Computed example of a mutant assay.
Amino acid sequence: MEELLDRTGQDWDRRAHRIGVLAETAGRAAPKAWRKQRPRDHNALTLHAWSDLAHAHEDGSFDDAKATVDSCLLAATLAPSDPTPWVVLLAVFRLQRRPARELASVWREIKARDPWNREAHLQALRYLSPFECGSRVKVLEFLDGLRSAPSYGTPVTGVELAAHVDRYHHTQSQGGIEALSIQQYWARVDVQHVLDQASEYWHQPGVLTHAAALADLNLLAYALVRARRFDDATRILNALNGTATAWPWGWDQDALEMFTSWHNRLIR
């Protein structure tokens, strides 16, 4: 793990991606042991904090939230140019539903170091959603800010589509009258515009070059399937070459089963 993270240098996008994957897959013991062995190594501290975060999502709460926050702050002190400890801290504050002013101060630290940090934008998007601490108006303002900046082709290219998938999922899960007609969501003009642009350009070489590009292509394939745009979905599934991600395929059933079902149906 140490060598893997050291090799990223100041490629903050790839560093965050690798630490995130390790935190989700390495279990509790390895990050804890590395942090104990290297108590002032910023990579060990950041991984341990992200691992705490991953398990807090599973368990519903932190074992020791203050210790996790302290790990982030120490890692940030030891590696002042690295945005990743601040990204983890933002996610911790989001899970705790901390006041917006506290997240805003962390957000500024991240933006000063890595303006297009994908994980940070996804965390902020979900905090601002009406399903957490914000509203649909706040989400629209956030996305308008992305559209007004030259962000296309950066690691945040898929954030607007992620917002649509999140809204679809949450509306569906809440039930009620709006959920009964949720399939029509994909026919909205603004959603179709996002799908048009993404399906035309994202799979082309050199457009998506960030570390989580395959995750964003999975997001697009899923959205195209839901929108019943099967020709476009087939093109994106071909580009994925069988690589599946847990989100969003695993929202309401086994992710690999759902991905494989659509892959076998559309790829002949």
Rank of each mutant, 00 (worst) to 15 (best):
L89D: 09
L220Y: 01
R38C: 10
L195C: 12
A49F: 00
Q192P: 11
N117M: 07
A244R: 06
E3C: 11
T68V: 03
A223F: 01
T154C: 11
Q183C: 10
V69R: 04
L90A: 11
R118Q: 08
A54L: 00
P115T: 09
T77K: 09
A104C: 00
A44F: 00
R35F: 00
T84C: 08
S129I: 05
R126K: 05
F62S: 10
P99T: 05
T154L: 06
T245D: 14
D190F: 01
A149E: 13
E2A: 10
A223E: 10
R38P: 08
P83R: 02
Q123N: 10
H263N: 14
L103F: 00
A54H: 04
S71L: 04
T234W: 00
L195M: 12
D196Y: 09
A223M: 04
T8A: 05
P115L: 03
W251Y: 12
D6H: 07
A244S: 15
T243M: 08
A211F: 02
N218I: 05
P248D: 15
R265V: 03
L195D: 15
V88T: 12
H121F: 02
L146N: 09
A187W: 01
L103E: 02
S181R: 14
S148I: 04
A124I: 04
A76Q: 02
R126M: 11
H17C: 13
S105N: 05
T260G: 09
R38W: 02
V69P: 05
T260V: 04
Q184M: 11
S129K: 03
C72H: 01
W262I: 06
S173D: 15
R98G: 04
K138F: 02
A54R: 03
A26L: 11
N238Y: 01
A67Y: 00
Q183H: 11
R235A: 14
D166N: 11
R38E: 13
C133G: 08
P115A: 05
Y185P: 07
E109V: 04
R7Y: 05
V225L: 09
Q172Y: 08
A76I: 02
W262K: 03
W34P: 13
H55Y: 05
R38I: 08
L224T: 10
H193A: 14
R40M: 02
L47G: 06
L143D: 07
D232Q: 08
F62N: 12
V225C: 14
Y185F: 15
T68E: 01
T77A: 08
D196E: 15
A187G: 13
Q172R: 13
I182S: 12
G206Y: 04
D59V: 04
P115Y: 00
W249Y: 06
C72G: 03
F142K: 03
K138E: 13
P85F: 00
Y201Q: 14
Y201E: 15
H164D: 14
D59A: 10
S129N: 10
Q204K: 13
A213W: 01
V156Y: 01
F259P: 06
D63L: 09
